[in-house]
Computed example of a mutant assay.
Amino acid sequence: MPLGIVIRRMPGVTRWAKWHWRAVAVLPGARPADWAELRRDGETVEYHAATKALTLWATDTEAYLTNLADKVPSIYVVLRESSDRNKPLEVLLVTASPYEGQDYADNGEDIVEKVAMPDGLAAWVRRFAQEHHEDEAFVKRRRDKKRVDLTEDGKGDARIRQVSDVYRAPRRMMP
């Protein structure tokens, strides 16, 4: 489903940041756009920055259900700073998976904005997740009986005979 991304530009609150940019809404079924101005109120401007496809995967239904169980179901918008002054942010992707959003947040280069999901979109995601979700049985890992405490790490190569520890201080040879 195509989702239009609405980004708001507001005046910065410090002298180091002239503008504050934030993803504030998604527009389900939007047409392609390239930073089209939607609304202006003084210095605050909202742009339809881009339209990205929201793709749902049958293997991610657990993540979608986790998102829908949240107090406010959300779409995660992944943004990256751009060198273009007219388009300071590039919209990389939109996802309904909080796990995928967390993966992008962990890299430190991308900005991940959590935007409230409209009710119609939440119903669409819920229907998809319920149709494709399969519960996975929990399988407890069993330990094998192998003894791992019998080897001494750091004693050097087992193929080379050593009188003592290889980390010993070398002896000084006297002429």
Rank of each mutant, 00 (worst) to 15 (best):
T151E: 07
I160E: 14
L56T: 01
Q130I: 03
P170M: 03
R141T: 01
D106Y: 08
R31D: 15
E109C: 12
G42Y: 12
M10K: 15
K52R: 15
E109M: 14
R85S: 11
A123F: 06
E46N: 04
T55E: 13
A69R: 10
G120R: 11
M173R: 15
D103A: 11
V94H: 01
V112A: 02
M117R: 11
K114W: 01
R9G: 01
R80G: 09
E134W: 13
V77P: 01
R147W: 00
T51P: 02
E131S: 03
G42I: 07
I160Q: 12
Q162T: 13
D60Y: 09
L68I: 01
D110T: 14
T151W: 04
Y64F: 12
E113G: 05
V26G: 05
P28Y: 05
A53N: 05
R126A: 14
D70C: 07
K140C: 09
V163F: 11
R8Y: 03
V6P: 06
M1V: 12
L79A: 00
A23S: 09
E134C: 09
I75C: 01
G42L: 04
L150V: 06
G120K: 10
I111A: 03
W35C: 14
M10G: 08
D106R: 15
I5G: 13
V125C: 14
E37M: 15
R161D: 10
R39C: 05
E136V: 07
Y104T: 01
T95A: 10
I5W: 10
R159F: 14
E81F: 05
S83W: 12
A116I: 04
T14M: 02
L3R: 08
K18T: 13
F128A: 04
R172C: 06
A116F: 06
I75G: 04
R80S: 14
Q102E: 11
L38K: 05
R31K: 15
A122Q: 06
T14G: 00
G156V: 04
R22Q: 15
F128I: 00
R159E: 10
G101L: 00
G120N: 12
R126P: 01
T14V: 01
K155Q: 10
P118T: 11
V72S: 06
A33V: 00
W57N: 13
M10Y: 09
N86D: 15
G12E: 07
A122I: 02
V78L: 13
T66H: 10
L89F: 09
R168W: 11
R161M: 08
Y104F: 15
L38P: 02
T151R: 11
P2Q: 12
A58T: 14
L65T: 01
E100C: 00
T14W: 01
A25Y: 00
A63W: 12
V6C: 13
K114L: 03
K155P: 00
A116S: 07
Y104G: 02
V112N: 10
W16Y: 15
